[in-house]
Structures are given as structure tokens and as C-alpha cells.
């Protein structure tokens, strides 16, 4: 089998998910044994510019230039992997969509803001077709490995369509709600092996919501714990603002 050619690209993001990849150490080396990395700005200076078997894309699409660039990458790549929350659900960049654009452009760029066009933040699949989603902020390395293996095998990877609670229970964590702490696990899709809760943190909803959440039920639960809905919506919007742009 010829080694697949891979390119790793970034858009609006903190590059933290690529850092996770670089941090994989031995695992990344054995996986890279099955891949040929042709472009990866974060760790190499070469560019390639031709056909790719796999494009791994971190970051969200936030301006017209990015739209053109992701479309070019899509045309070059047989398989496109949206990598990390910014790419898969818009992530924290989505918070921009809460504001009036001219005002924030002035705030960020000052008087010359007119030279810096902007657009509502979008997840990658809201601009071009995506073959694999690796959610998370940052991505969870075991899931990255699973998805890359699926891509190499040419089989689909189905992101778990059930809440983080499932994995959290299997890990036998004490429920955050029993500790009187608000946690987004019940409405967030699993696949991270409840990474944050295993380490004493709450779930921030960085993987996006399950496909068919019982919203009324969730509101009742919040009411039971005396948590204002607005608080949870705010928490949810930290990562998930861009879901408003998804087709119903």
C-alpha cells in the first residue's frame, strides 16, 4: 500500500489541537509510519500544494479569505478531517457571532479596520463537505488515533450520539450534579471518555450537543438544581454558538 499523503492546515484557532498531535510522541511516530506528511506549517517549512489523500483542518472559517482557502484545500483532498472544536462546531470563535461586526472590528483593528473584512464564524462543514469529525477542545488523542485508523482503513467513524454521562458512568465518577456543580455532560456528545470529569473538571460542552436532546427535560433538571437556564445557555454558547448556522 502506498503511504497516503497528508496535509495539516490551520484556520482561526489556537493551534492547540495540532500541538496535541505533536505531543502524541511514540503513537504519532508509528502512525506517521503509515502516512506521508506533505504540509504541516506548525512543524515543517515545506509546502506541497498538490493532491492530498487526507487533509486535517484545525480552526474555524471566519473571513472571505479563509472561505477561499478551505475550498481550495477541499478540492485538493480526497478525505477532509475537521479537527478540533473550532473546526467541527465553530468552537470559541463562534462567540464573535454574538456581536455587531463593525464594532468588534474597530475594537480589534482600530481605525484601519476596513482593511480587515470579517464574516460570521463557521465550522468547516458549514462551508465545505467534511468526511470525519474529531471533536474536542483540545482533541482527545485516543479518538484522534481511532479516526486516523478509520480514515486509513477507508471506513466511516461515527461520533457517539449519546451524552458524556455514558462514558462518565463507565468510569465510575461521582456525578458533578451530586457535587452540586453544573456540568454539560448530559447534553454533550461522548467520545472523549469523560476526560475532563475523570480529572476533576466539569464538562464544558466542547464536543457539541447530542442530536436529539430532550430540551424540556434538561430544563426541568436545571430547575430542580436551581440553575438558571441563561447560565447554561451561556455555558453552552461558549463552544456551540455556531450550531445556529446548521441546517435543521
Amino acid at each position: 500500500m502506498k503511504k497516503p499523503k497528508v496535509g495539516i492546515f490551520d484556520f482561526a484557532c489556537c493551534e492547540g489541537c495540532q500541538l496535541q498531535l505533536a505531543n502524541m510522541g511514540e503513537q504519532v511516530l508509528s502512525l506517521l509510519g503509515s502516512l506521508r506528511v506533505m504540509e504541516w506549517r506548525e512543524v515543517m517549512s515545506e509546502t506541497w500544494g498538490k493532491k492530498l489523500d487526507i487533509a486535517i483542518v484545525e480552526g474555524s472559517i471566519t473571513d472571505p479569505h479563509a472561505v477561499e482557502r478551505i475550498q481550495r484545500i477541499r478540492r485538493r483532498a480526497s478525505v477532509l478531517i475537521a479537527y478540533g472544536s473550532c473546526a467541527t462546531i465553530g468552537g470559541v470563535n463562534g462567540m464573535k457571532n454574538n456581536f455587531v461586526f463593525d464594532e468588534i472590528r474597530k475594537y480589534v483593528y482600530g481605525d484601519s479596520y476596513a482593511f480587515f473584512p470579517t464574516e460570521p464564524t463557521k465550522a468547516v462543514h458549514q462551508v465545505v463537505e467534511v468526511d470525519y469529525f474529531i471533536h474536542g477542545c483540545p482533541v482527545y488523542i485516543p479518538e484522534v488515533v481511532t479516526v486516523l485508523k478509520a480514515a486509513l482503513q477507508g471506513i466511516p467513524y461515527y461520533v457517539p450520539d449519546y451524552p458524556v454521562c455514558v462514558e462518565c458512568k463507565l468510569n465510575e465518577n461521582v456525578c458533578m450534579y451530586d457535587r452540586k456543580v453544573t456540568c454539560l455532560g448530559p447534553v454533550t456528545r461522548a467520545g472523549c471518555n469523560s476526560w475532563c470529569i475523570n480529572n476533576g473538571n466539569i464538562c464544558y460542552g466542547c464536543r457539541g450537543m447530542v442530536s436529539n436532546p430532550n430540551e424540556k427535560g434538561a430544563l426541568d433538571v436545571l430547575a430542580k438544581y436551581g440553575i438558571p437556564t441563561s447560565l447554561v445557555v451561556n455555558k453552552m454558547n461558549m463552544y456551540n454558538k455556531c450550531r445556529e448556522l446548521d441546517e435543521p
Partner: peptide
Amino acid sequence: NERCLACGN
């Protein structure tokens, strides 16, 4: 149906 969050707990 109205109450269950289908979390599997």
C-alpha cells in the same frame, strides 16, 4: 418521555 434525558445512567 418528557422527563428522560436518555443518558443511559
